[in-house]
Design a protein around this nucleic acid. Sequence first.
DNA 1: TTTTTCGTACAGTTTAAACTGAACAAACTT
DNA 2: AAGTTTGTTCAGTTTAAACTGTACGAAAAA
Lengths: 176, 176
Amino acid sequence: MSEPNLKDINELITTEFAKTVEMFGLTPSEARLFAILYLEGEPMTLDEMGEALGKSKTSMSTGIRSLLELNLVERVWKKGERKDLYRADENLYKKFMNAFIHKWMDATNRQKHSLEQIETVLSQNGSNLPGAADPKEVNDLNARLKDMIAFHQLLETAFKKIKPANSVSIDQKLNS
Amino acid sequence: MSEPNLKDINELITTEFAKTVEMFGLTPSEARLFAILYLEGEPMTLDEMGEALGKSKTSMSTGIRSLLELNLVERVWKKGERKDLYRADENLYKKFMNAFIHKWMDATNRQKHSLEQIETVLSQNGSNLPGAADPKEVNDLNARLKDMIAFHQLLETAFKKIKPANSVSIDQKLNS
DNA sequence: TTTTTCGTACAGTTTAAACTGAACAAACTT
DNA sequence: AAGTTTGTTCAGTTTAAACTGTACGAAAAA
């Protein structure tokens, strides 16, 4: 292999880091945009991002909006600069985890509640349900429901375990 | 709202549960297939799944393969049955977590190693890199790399925290 | 004021994913 | 043996996502 140049190395890092970011549910495009932004360190304009990724400014605009909604990126103000500037926040790790843990916990909780509500309906309307050929069918369904709810409960507990706020601060870990 | 029938309730449960499953990176189709399968409880054939979801058998075949590869579903043998039977495993929760925790940990580890390798290259080829306008540029890049590697380390630690203690064993299967 | 520079909305296009039906091989039934 | 049944491969289609360029409003510059 010939001598690596800086461009190639940046490319490699971006690709690897983007893979990790994708694990959190971001699309490849969003992940790559975030990786570029984080690797750059300095706040970037839409034009710079488009240049770096070889895509249109429109595409960058929508991409950035997604990242903003996820709180993974923030808009930055700079004196004398007309263009919008965005950067991957300094406090990256905590912010990153927080964004997704919370998102997942909220979703899990919401779905758990839905299931519990269904469980209530099912137990109230008890046996006189139209479409139930067999009381056993209702029983089985109830059992499954309970299992699902328990599953959601376990998920919540698991998420809680890795939620930064509960554990030792990430900054402290970094300095250990 | 008029009296709910069993069909509607099943529909609701499936939809809610599928949402949760989607959080783990499954496509909506895969998630729904899994939800149907789990809710049914009994092993199902491809035809039954297709019927339940209103999709072709071909589609079910590919969908089931995905779930099999994720170890979320297993093939079941039944005496006198020619068709393949699949079911969402009894030991669902543990299996589910295991599948994804391992997958994520492996991926994280792989990407961390890649970054560490890049870090090595960067420190060896030190300052004489073509394309580097500024030695500060290389320093900054190095700092970012270290941050990314630390991030991956933290992710690994977090995953480890929620990993079920023991992986799925034959004994568990036998006693289920 | 007019002109330029931004960011975004929108319509249209390109690209990728999901899905289907026909065809086929393997296994089973008769 | 011939005829079914079953799962999967493959080619083609449908559907959804990503992306682009034009157009336009808002804000800054001239």
